[in-house]
Measured scan of single mutants.
Amino acid sequence: ELREAFRLYDKEGNGYISTDVMREILAELDETLSSEDLDAMIDEIDADGSGTVDFEEFMGVMT
């Protein structure tokens, strides 16, 4: 189920989504998050600083 959700956002099928897209997902899930909260969450999610979120990083957030 998580893989299907990931595929919805990984429109190009390249195995990752951008941190911008991940930020939008988080904002949709919790509309009360401030910009600073979102920045901090993205920094934590994208631990390797690649600017992308792969499936493993995505799973870590969603579980």
Rank of each mutant, 00 (worst) to 15 (best):
A5T: 14
V61P: 02
F55H: 02
D39I: 06
D20K: 15
Y9S: 03
V53H: 01
M41V: 06
D48I: 06
E57C: 12
L38S: 01
L29G: 05
Y9M: 07
E1L: 14
D54P: 06
L8E: 08
F55E: 06
D43S: 14
D48R: 08
D20C: 11
S50L: 06
A47E: 08
A5G: 04
D46A: 04
D20I: 12
G51T: 03
E31C: 11
S35L: 09
T32D: 07
E57Q: 15
S34T: 13
S34V: 05
R7D: 11
E44H: 13
T63P: 05
G15S: 03
E36I: 08
L29R: 13
E4K: 09
L33S: 02
E56N: 11
L38R: 03
V53S: 01
D20R: 14
L8D: 05
G60F: 15
I25M: 06
E1D: 15
M41F: 08
I25R: 02
E4F: 07
Y16N: 03
E24F: 14
E56L: 11
S34K: 07
R23E: 00
E12W: 08
V61A: 14
E57R: 15
S35M: 11
T19E: 01
R7T: 10
G60T: 15
D54Q: 09
Y9N: 04
I42E: 01
E1C: 15
V61F: 15
I45H: 03
Y16A: 04
E36V: 09
D10R: 00
E57G: 15
M41Q: 04
R23L: 03
I45C: 04
G60D: 09
E57P: 02
E1M: 13
E36L: 09
I17R: 01
M22W: 05
N14A: 08
I45D: 00
E4Q: 07
E36H: 09
A40H: 14
R3Q: 10
S34L: 06
I25G: 00
D43F: 13
R3G: 08
L33A: 05
E12V: 06
E28H: 14
E36P: 05
A47D: 05
G49P: 02
I42F: 05
M41R: 08
E31L: 12
A27F: 10
T19W: 07
M22S: 00
M62L: 08
A5R: 15
L2V: 05
D48E: 08
L2C: 15
M62N: 02
T63D: 06
S35F: 07
N14I: 10
L26D: 00
D10F: 09
D46T: 04
D46P: 02
E12A: 08
N14L: 14
F58K: 00
I45R: 02
T32P: 02
E36A: 12
D30I: 11
E24V: 14
A40M: 10
E4I: 07
G15Y: 03
G13A: 05
I42P: 00
R3E: 14
E36M: 09
T63C: 13
E44P: 03
E1W: 15
G15Q: 02
G51H: 07
G13V: 04
D10N: 01
Y16D: 01
G51R: 07
N14D: 06
D54S: 15
I17G: 00
L26N: 00
D46C: 04
D46M: 03
F6L: 03
S18K: 06
D43C: 13
F6W: 14
D30Y: 14
D48L: 07
F6P: 02
A27E: 05
T19M: 11
G51A: 04
M59T: 08
D20Q: 15
D39Y: 05
L2G: 03
S50Q: 05
M22A: 04
D30Q: 07
I42C: 02
I45W: 06
A27P: 01
R23M: 02
E44M: 13
E1Q: 13
F55G: 01
I25F: 08
E28T: 13
Y9D: 02
A40Q: 10
G13M: 06
F58Y: 09
A40T: 09
L38I: 12
A5K: 15
V61Q: 04
G13Q: 07
T32G: 09
E1H: 13
L29E: 03
I17T: 00
F6S: 02
F6V: 03
R23V: 01
L33Q: 03
G13W: 03
E56D: 11
L8M: 13
A27S: 11
S50F: 05
V53K: 00
T19V: 12
Y9A: 08
E24W: 15
S18M: 06
G49I: 03
D39N: 09
T63E: 09
L8N: 11
R23K: 10
M41H: 03
D48S: 08
E56H: 11
M41D: 01
G60W: 15
G13I: 02
R23H: 01
T52F: 08
E36Q: 11
L2Y: 12
A5D: 05
S50I: 05
G13L: 05
E12L: 09
S18T: 12
D20T: 14
S50P: 02
L2F: 11
E4V: 07
M41E: 01
F58C: 03
V21R: 12
I17M: 03
V61S: 06
S50G: 05
A5F: 15
G51Y: 03
V61H: 10
D20G: 11
E1P: 11
Y9R: 07
E24C: 15
T19P: 04
D54C: 08
S34D: 06
I45T: 04
D54W: 10
D39T: 06
T32C: 09
I17K: 00
K11Y: 09
D37L: 08
D54L: 07
V21Y: 09
M62D: 01
V61C: 11
E4P: 05
T19L: 14
E28F: 10
M59G: 03
F55P: 01
F58M: 02
D30G: 05
A27T: 09
M41W: 15
N14F: 10
F58E: 00
L2E: 04
R23P: 00
G60P: 03
E4Y: 07
Y16K: 06
E24L: 15
F55I: 08
S18W: 04
G13S: 05
Y9V: 04
L33D: 01
A47L: 10
M59V: 14
D43W: 14
M62H: 04
M62V: 07
I42V: 07
M62A: 04
T19R: 11
I17F: 04
R23I: 02
L33R: 07
E56A: 10
T52H: 09
L33N: 01
G60E: 11
M62E: 01
V61R: 05
D43E: 12
R7E: 10
L26T: 00
E36W: 11
M59I: 13
Y16W: 15
T19A: 06
E12K: 07
S50Y: 05
L8H: 12
D30R: 10
I17E: 00
M59E: 07
L29A: 08
V21P: 00
V53Y: 03
E36D: 11
E28L: 14
F58P: 00
D10K: 00
F6D: 02
L8S: 12
D43V: 12
T63H: 10
G60S: 15
V61I: 13
L26K: 00
S34M: 07
A40C: 11
G13H: 05
M22T: 01
D54T: 15
L26A: 02
M22D: 00
D46F: 04
D30L: 12
N14T: 10
E1V: 12
A27G: 08
E1G: 13
V61K: 06
T63I: 13
Y16V: 05
A5N: 05
E28G: 14
D54I: 06
A40Y: 09
D20S: 14
D10S: 03
D37Y: 06
M59Y: 13
G60V: 14
V53M: 03
D10A: 04
Y9K: 04
E28P: 01
R7I: 12
L8K: 15
A47K: 14
E57K: 15
A47F: 09
E44G: 11
D46V: 05
E28I: 11
S18I: 04
L2W: 15
M62I: 08
F58S: 00
E4H: 07
S34R: 08
T63S: 12
V53L: 08
L38A: 02
E56M: 09
V21S: 12
S18P: 08
L26R: 00
F55A: 03
S35D: 12
V53C: 04
S18Y: 06
L29Y: 11
V61Y: 15
L2I: 08
R3V: 10
A5E: 06
D37K: 09
F6C: 10
M59H: 06
R7S: 12
T52W: 07
E36S: 11
D30E: 05
Y9I: 06
Y16F: 11
L33M: 07
I45K: 01
D10H: 01
D43K: 14
A27C: 07
T63F: 09
E44V: 12
S18Q: 05
D43L: 14
V53I: 15
E56R: 10
D37H: 07
T63Y: 09
V53N: 00
